[in-house]
């Protein structure tokens, strides 16, 4: 009964725009070691202001991507661009107009345990992991 991405994400966009929150199971390895494909779930809400470090769901080139925001470049006219990078990616980034960001992660169910992004464990990870980018290739192998 798995709902395909092209069905789920337009619906996710609608629900987030209505002010509701949405939970789904992640697919793909690009957010390792934080999220494991088909095991872990994320809960998202719409956000008024996107910040560096947020985990954002964005539509990029017809694909839906859930990655960490590494930069926000506002254009001063209410628009701008977000640059994203998966925690599990070595160097690849994506960018999209801010308007293409559908929402941000507010809670994670990891290996069956739910935690908020205010938890000490997550805050430590979110601070250290981007700093450790030069070691990422090695660390990913370690945590695989």
């Amino acid at each position: 009964m798995e709902v395909p991405n092209e069905v789920m994400f337009p619906e996710v966009r609608r629900l987030l725009a209505e002010g509701r929150t949405v939970t789904f199971c992640v697919r793909g390895d690009s957010m390792r070691p934080l999220l494991r494909s088909r095991r872990d779930k994320v809960t998202l809400a719409a956000c008024a202001t996107l910040r560096r470090g947020d985990l954002a769901l964005a539509e990029i080139g017809g694909m839906y991507v859930l990655h960490r925001v590494v930069a926000v470049r506002e254009d001063g006219r209410g628009g701008g661009e977000a640059v994203l990078m998966g925690d599990g990616n070595i160097g690849a980034t994506e960018s999209c107009p801010l308007a293409h960001v559908m929402g941000i992660v507010v809670a994670i169910d990891r290996a069956g345990r739910r935690f908020s992004l205010d938890s000490r464990w997550y805050r430590l990870y979110a601070r250290l992991w981007p700093e450790a980018k030069p070691l990422r290739r090695f660390l990913l192998r370690l945590f695989a």
């Binding site: 395909p4 337009p10 929150t21 789904f24």
Partner: peptide, 21 residues
């Protein structure tokens, strides 16, 4: 949606797609 029929719970704050039908 996109040619597929899905049953979405209405009136709830959070919609869990891992349980959607």
């Amino acid at each position: 949606v996109g040619g597929e029929d899905i049953l979405v719970p209405g009136g709830v704050e959070n919609v869990d797609f891992s349980r959607i039908i």
